[in-house]
């Protein structure tokens, strides 16, 4: 265990119209892991992320970053945001510059980096996200999938310790969604803590190492996906379903087709390997 990079204690947030988005939420996020925050629409995922980034100030409760309490003066916020990057759900609102290159350079230059270092980071982010050949284009000329990748590149170029993706696969076709999830996997492999929000149980099950389930702004469950997703009733209560793969595994296990003592599989291939009499 590397320890927790983020800890939240008793966090509550209500919007000006009175909607209670977070209600006494306490949770911990382990460092270096791929974390999925799972919840139905309106369960408080986005509000949680905006609080983590210091964009919303909670009504009560505390956020600890590496054991240090988050404070809301300008200097502390800048320091936080240089280490914790957030990719918004709608890339349209994130892109403002007149070319992809300037967009991606915005973050690194804000960090006060020298021109040369900023350029290195821009190139790196463009190459990693596969957007190098788009760098001269204006944002309105990109497809939705490309905009998403540019939005990720623009945060990645700041080399954050934590990368948050709010519904990173929303409105993407299967191919682009897979590309984005692979990219987040690669980023995580380099040591960055990656946090995503989703309501797709299959996606969370196959990708995450740690799952946090929210319901109406409260913590419902958290832990490794194999454990969290076993509780079918809890998932149904949260407005989510059990991952298809796990459902199959449990059904086959109930009928006695699965090898004794086998742990829940994470991929279809792993499931096939657990079947009795399989070759």
């Amino acid at each position: 265990m590397d320890g927790n990079i983020i800890e939240i204690r008793d966090l509550s947030y209500s919007y000006p119209d009175g909607t209670l988005a977070l209600q006494g939420l306490s949770l911990a996020m382990p460092e270096g892991k791929r974390i999925a925050v799972l919840g139905a629409n309106g369960s408080g995922k986005t509000t949680l992320f905006l609080c983590l980034n210091g964009l919303l100030r909670p009504r009560q409760g505390k956020i600890f970053y590496r054991g240090e309490e988050l404070r809301y003066d300008k200097k502390s916020l800048l320091r936080l945001r240089s280490r914790l990057g957030i990719v918004f759900q709608d890339p349209e609102i994130q892109l403002f510059a007149s070319s992809v290159r300037q967009e991606v350079a915005f973050g690194p230059l804000n960090l006060g980096l020298e021109e040369r270092e900023a350029l290195v980071r821009v190139e790196e982010a463009l190459c990693l996200t596969g957007t190098k050949d788009l760098e001269q284009k204006a944002p309105h000329m990109l497809s939705y999938g490309q905009k998403k990748q540019v939005a990720i590149a623009s945060v990645l170029a700041m080399r954050p310790e934590i990368l948050i993706g709010d519904e990173p696969t929303a409105w993407l076709d299967r191919q682009h969604a897979c590309r984005v999830m692979e990219l987040l996997h690669e980023i995580s492999a380099k040591g960055t803590t990656v946090i995503i929000s989703t309501h797709d149980a299959d996606l969370a099950y196959s990708w995450a190492e740690e799952v946090i389930v929210l319901q109406k702004g409260k913590l419902l469950s958290s832990g490794p996906p194999e454990h969290v997703f076993q509780a079918g009733e809890m998932l149904a209560a949260a407005g989510l379903g059990q991952p298809l793969l796990l459902q199959l595994f449990l059904l086959l296990k109930g009928k006695g087709y699965i090898l004794e003592g086998a742990a829940a599989p994470r991929t279809p291939e792993a499931l096939a390997g657990l079947l009795k009499g399989g070759s």
């Binding site: 964009l55 945001r81 609102i93 510059a97 915005f106 230059l109 804000n110």
Partner: peptide, 18 residues
């Protein structure tokens, strides 16, 4: 929302360019 997006990337009132 765009303002929030800018703030999250350490926006301090200017738009530096490469």
């Amino acid at each position: 929302m765009m303002h929030a997006g800018l703030l999250s990337r350490c926006y301090e009132g200017t738009f530096p360019t490469l």
